[in-house]
Nucleic acid binder design. Sequence first.
DNA 1: ATTTTTATCAAGAACTATTCTAAATAATAA
DNA 2: TTATTATTTAGAATAGTTCTTGATAAAAAT
Lengths: 150, 150
Amino acid sequence: MSQNSTGNIKQFNLGEGHRMTPQRRFVYEVLMNSKDHPTATEVFMRVKNKMDSISLATVYNCLDALVGVGVVRQVNVDREPSRYCGNLEPHAHFHCENCASVEDISLKDGAKPSNSLKLPRGAKVEKFEVVVRGLCPECALSIKTKKQLN
Amino acid sequence: MSQNSTGNIKQFNLGEGHRMTPQRRFVYEVLMNSKDHPTATEVFMRVKNKMDSISLATVYNCLDALVGVGVVRQVNVDREPSRYCGNLEPHAHFHCENCASVEDISLKDGAKPSNSLKLPRGAKVEKFEVVVRGLCPECALSIKTKKQLN
DNA sequence: ATTTTTATCAAGAACTATTCTAAATAATAA
DNA sequence: TTATTATTTAGAATAGTTCTTGATAAAAAT
Ligand SMILES: [Mn+2]
Ligand SMILES: [Mn+2]
Ligand SMILES: [Zn+2]
Ligand SMILES: [Zn+2]
């Protein structure tokens, strides 16, 4: 989904009154080439390698525009800085409490997390967000190993 | 869970090195008597009615202490101010995009939202958070009614 | 009971992610 | 081209939260 078979970034337009600028394209490309859910500052640093003149405020503007148009998702975990995700498939996020990484978690085929909830009658659900917190496989293993050394 | 049959607030201690002070008791009582997930500032205003001398910084300290001990939950929705919840049962939250209210959603009996996820092998799950966003029944109804008037 | 130690409180300063402001620049429309 | 509108940029402003520090209160030791 992030890249097509020719290796080119998917094209799209931003709709009436919105312009596809070089800054927005770079921000979009960085997200399509990242699966680690970078923060705005991390996106800024990555784009800066390609376009040294870009400003952090512009990265925020571009991220807002891309999120608003729906080609990028904003991911919030606790009170940490917002992260951004180019994966538009329905999915959840795993947040490691040790290394602070955020990884995608895919849904079991056909399963909807909302099916396990008693949603209030009459409510109109727009979307739902699922965040799992704990230790990622690497950190879980390294912490277990460290304990064995005692 | 929030109150026992005599109407008194549940007693507990905060563990080694932690003191149950009047400030902490008031903060705890406010949360036990609220089901609307107040922010720190809202808790501050409610406690201030009972103890005028309390400061916002102390409310933050007390909330941190109560969350740390596990008798209160911190609930984050998007980048909005943190909210606090006295309901320790596993449950999800519904966030209305119109009136900004946050309500508890209970889980279907025996259902676990994590069962619908392909959790990474070897990960150690501490907890998971489910937030549903949309329109609460009241707002969904009033917006539908408003549209009919056109 | 007095002293000592430790935890907590309170006021304000500091911090930080994000948003806002305003002037310059770039893209589109007329 | 000229006019209009959108975007970029740097820096100021904002807001929720955390930190600092001296005062106060609780617990422990004497
Ligand atoms: Mn993701
Ligand atoms: Mn709740
Ligand atoms: Zn990890
Ligand atoms: Zn509502």
